[in-house]
Design a protein around this nucleic acid. Sequence first.
DNA 1: TGAACTGTAACTATAATAGTTACAGTTAGG
DNA 2: CCTAACTGTAACTATTATAGTTACAGTTCA
Lengths: 165, 165
Amino acid sequence: MYTNSRFAVAVHTLVYLAMRQDRDAVTSAMFAKSVNTNSVVIRRILGNLHKARLVSSRAGSGGGWALTRPPNKITLCEIYRAVEQGVVFALPQRAANPHCPVGKHMQLILDSYFKEAEQALEGRLAKVTLADVVSDVRAHAQGVKGMARTEDVQRRRQGRAPRTR
Amino acid sequence: MYTNSRFAVAVHTLVYLAMRQDRDAVTSAMFAKSVNTNSVVIRRILGNLHKARLVSSRAGSGGGWALTRPPNKITLCEIYRAVEQGVVFALPQRAANPHCPVGKHMQLILDSYFKEAEQALEGRLAKVTLADVVSDVRAHAQGVKGMARTEDVQRRRQGRAPRTR
DNA sequence: TGAACTGTAACTATAATAGTTACAGTTAGG
DNA sequence: CCTAACTGTAACTATTATAGTTACAGTTCA
C-alpha cells in the first residue's frame, strides 16, 4: 500500500507534455507550477521516467523535457512501473517464526498471491493510454480557457495574449 | 514507498486460526509468536478484523480469538478491506494549480483511474479464499512436523509430547 | 480472589516522502 | 566566449505512517 504520490505526479507531467507536444520543451519549473510543488521533486520523478525511456531531456538554455513516443503508445502501466517498485503489499520486516509451519511458509505463499493481485492491478493500468487521460482532461476542461504558464512560456507564445480567467 | 504489512499479518493470523479451528481459542500471544512480533501489534490488527466481523474475541482467562465463518467463506478481499483504507495510490497533498487546466482536472480524473485499478486488485483478491491459502500452507508444510506453541498450548494438548527440533 | 485474557492509550524508534537549498555540468544565443 | 537558462543530483529538514513497546483498566474463568 503506497502513500506516495509519485505515480500521480508522473501522470500529471506526462499529460501536460502530451497536451503541448507541438511546442517547445517543457521545463521542470513549468511542471512544478502546474503540479504545485518544487521543481526538484519534478526532476526526480522525470528522472525515473527518463530511465524508463518515456521522456527525453535536454540540458542547458532552451532545454527541457519531451515525450519519446506519441501519447497513445504510452500506458499507465509503464508509467507506474517507472516510478514504483511494484510492491503494493509488504511482508513484515521480521521474518515469521521458522519453527511454526504456518509462519515458516506464509511469506512465500503470500508473496505469490500478492504478485497475482499486483498483476491484476497492472493489467488494468495497461489498458489505459496517456492519450485516454488527455481526452478526459480535454473533456473536463471544456469552457476553461488558458493554460498555466511561466513568464518564459508567455514570452515565447507571441501570437495570442494570455486569456484572463 | 510507504508500505505496511498489516494485510500480510492479518492473513497469517487467519490462516493460523483456520488451521486449528477445532481446538481452543487462540491468544494474541500465540499469534505473536508465529508472526514474530508483539502481541499488541496482533491485537490491533485483529481489532480491525473484529470490526469487519471476520473474527470474534473473548476476554478473560481461557479467552482468545476464533473465526466467525468457515475459511472457504472468507476471501482475501474481505481481509484486505478490513485492514487497509483501500487507497493504493495517493494524490499529492498539495492540490494542483487550479489556474492550469491540466492541474485543475488531473486529480479528479486520476482518482477514477486509480479506483478502477484498485477494483481490479480487489477483484483478484476476491477470487481467493482463506481455505485456498490453508491448502497452500498444508502443501508446503508436508514433511514439517509440529506447530509453534506457547507454554499454555503445550499444556493444553496433553496427548502428545512436544516434538524436539 | 487471582491468573489469564482483551482492548487501548501513550510513548519511542525507524523509515519513506516531499520540500528545499545548493551547486556542478550542459547548452543556446548574443 | 560569456551569460542566462536549463538538467541532474547531493544534502539536509520536516512530516508522517508504521511497528514495537510498556502499562493498565476491564473481563472472565476456575
